[in-house]
Write a protein that binds this DNA or RNA. Structure first.
Lengths: 349, 349
DNA sequence: CTGAAAGCGCTTACAG
DNA sequence: CTGAAAGCGCTTACAG
């Protein structure tokens, strides 16, 4: 069963393809009668315009590309959901690609999307991405590109992020406010901007509170996959290296959950012996024991907002206006749970 | 900066578009010299074939559609990952759509994908889907359609599933083997096939062990969203209704985790007072306390396999052969953890 | 070995 | 109010 074309409708009605096309699109210069006839037949034949032909003519695909480091991931899957939902509302389809945190794959995927002539690209960078030529290539073609969460500050394009530095500051301050004196940090991989920013927020909170910054308390993971195992390993190492640590701010909830599991296994009491704060507020964090104090990171909203930005830019391109770049910073919040102690009364008289 | 076309390459080289096209595709009737010239220029100009034009000519989009009930979901996101990875290997792009468990949305999305002229469709049905015309429409167009996980048995197409009935039987048998005498079941929504099959497996295990089947021990959730809250609610209700229940087989891990949380809060001991078995082996289940005994459901493999099936069918269509439908049943396994007791010794003499 | 020509299915400026 | 014609960027059967 071959799909129905305009020509078939035209032939059956003994009118021209032009008229059929215009009738379906409600051009004002077509008679009401013709329109009704055409629409009815299109309906009964179940006519669907051939997207390839339409795209070829209009140079629009109504499709966007999405490149994400990892799909099986609470935060990222929430972002995907936000993007897909918002895109559908505006009549756009989303092609999804996963970079697996690989720079090489990411580069290849950008090429794939460009070849596919998507109208715009949404990307969260792989940890390994340090070279941005593949991204500036996109921008050079006046193809809208919006980064979210894992971004490159140096690339000139719109970005949707949270204030990682501030959020990390709040997390660390909370540890301090609850009485922690010696606070470690699991920072994950070295490169990604949000890893850097969270580290800086941690450091600043220490210094602002006149606490010494000790680099040996910062655990970097070369693999940098932010995994459960990474948390377990780091926690084990920490217990060997620094028996005096009484608080940890951890880059990502999953890593924090790994750490908590290790502490539980070794009989280290949370929060009595060590307080733990995570980052992202994965659903899991509310149900483990003890439940994890963490930073709430609005994934769905970030996806929605990123698409909205991209949409604006795609409109600008369509209207032959210059693309206006804009950064959007979303709010985060601290979720207090059982892995940190009560805030000390600041009783002074 | 407008994308480069074949014509531009042809003009610069003073040859025809035909020759350029053939040279790039390594047709044997083009001279080595010409091929080298064309390829070099294409490279320097960063030529990328216009996918719309290619698709329009070849009637192939090298794109497939994926409709899934929920993206933020451990099992489904694993499936997505498997599909996307395998598709990319074979040179296909994936358009992702989320039905939100809504039949209406699902129907609309099928239309969207058909309009987009995807080469094939992968779908896991919404809970509410009871009418299959939108699916048979796809099949009637000789467009490959493969269902996975949440399928409709009545629709004639390839399916990739697990043996839900058998897996549920194994789960229930495990409860029996560990000494449970009165076993409840949280079955979730009424309609979906796997909900039905898991229930039947539960029931059969009881009967095969000469245990009475008591319908009042089966908790159906009309909302049927398989949520954490559903688990808490059902557990609360169960404690009111049936104080003698000492084991539960629960449809989905997330619901089981909700139940465990409720039991923990009410001081009901797991597995001493009540043993719990879940279904799916979400990552979360290994880190909660007590960790959850569950059925391992191979999400990534299911995604990969579903794409492979679709790929075969797309090849058949391409080669003008009839589509051969096939069901693939993937293996599951029981993961024993802390939420169930040790298996009783079957000492008989 | 090379190229002119037709055509995929649409849209739209233009003529009548 | 209707339609002939050009063209989007490719591919491929055919001629030379």
């Amino acid at each position: 069963m071959k799909p129905v074309t305009l020509k078939e409708i035209a032939d059956q009605l003994n009118i021209s393809v032009t008229t059929v096309s215009k009738a379906l699109k409600d051009y004002p210069d077509i008679s009401k009668k013709t329109k009704a006839l055409v629409k009815e037949l299109a309906q009964t034949l179940n006519y669907k315009p051939n997207a390839f032909a339409v795209n070829l003519r209009t140079k629009e695909s109504k499709t966007i590309g999405l490149i994400i480091p990892e799909i099986v991931h609470h935060f990222f899957s929430s972002v995907i959901k936000g993007i897909v939902a918002q895109a559908e509302k505006k009549g756009y389809l989303v092609i999804i690609l996963q970079s697996n945190e690989s720079y090489e794959l990411e580069k290849k995927q950008i090429q794939l999307l460009l070849r596919q002539r998507v109208d715009g690209i949404l990307i969260s960078l792989a940890n390994g991405t340090a070279d941005y030529n593949h991204l500036t290539d996109v921008l050079a073609q006046d193809k809208p590109l919006v980064m979210f969460d894992k971004i490159a500050k140096l690339v000139k394009c719109s970005k949707v992020i949270i204030d990682d530095r501030k959020a990390a500051y709040v997390a660390t301050q909370h540890l301090i406010d609850t009485g922690c004196k010696r606070i470690a940090h699991f920072r994950g991989a070295l490169l990604p901007q949000n890893s850097i920013d969270r580290f800086l927020g941690y450091k600043k909170a220490l210094l602002d509170n006149n606490m010494p910054y000790d680099p040996s308390l910062v655990y970097i993971c070369e693999c940098g996959d932010n995994s459960f195992e990474e948390g377990k390993m780091n926690a084990r190492q920490l217990l060997k290296d620094h028996k005096d640590v009484d608080g940890i701010f951890i880059n990502t909830d999953l890593v924090a959950i790994g750490a908590i599991t290790e502490f539980n296994e070794q009989g280290v009491k949370i929060p009595e012996d060590i307080s733990v704060v995570g980052f992202s507020n994965w659903f899991m964090s509310s149900v483990i024991s003890p439940s994890l104090t963490t930073i709430d990171q609005p994934g769905y909203l970030m996806g929605k907002t990123a698409f909205e930005r991209l949409y604006k830019e795609m409109q600008q391109v369509k209207n032959k206006k210059p693309i206006v770049y804009k950064d959007v910073v979303l709010e985060t919040g601290l979720i207090k749970r059982q892995s940190t102690k009560e805030i000390l009364q600041k009783t002074q008289h």
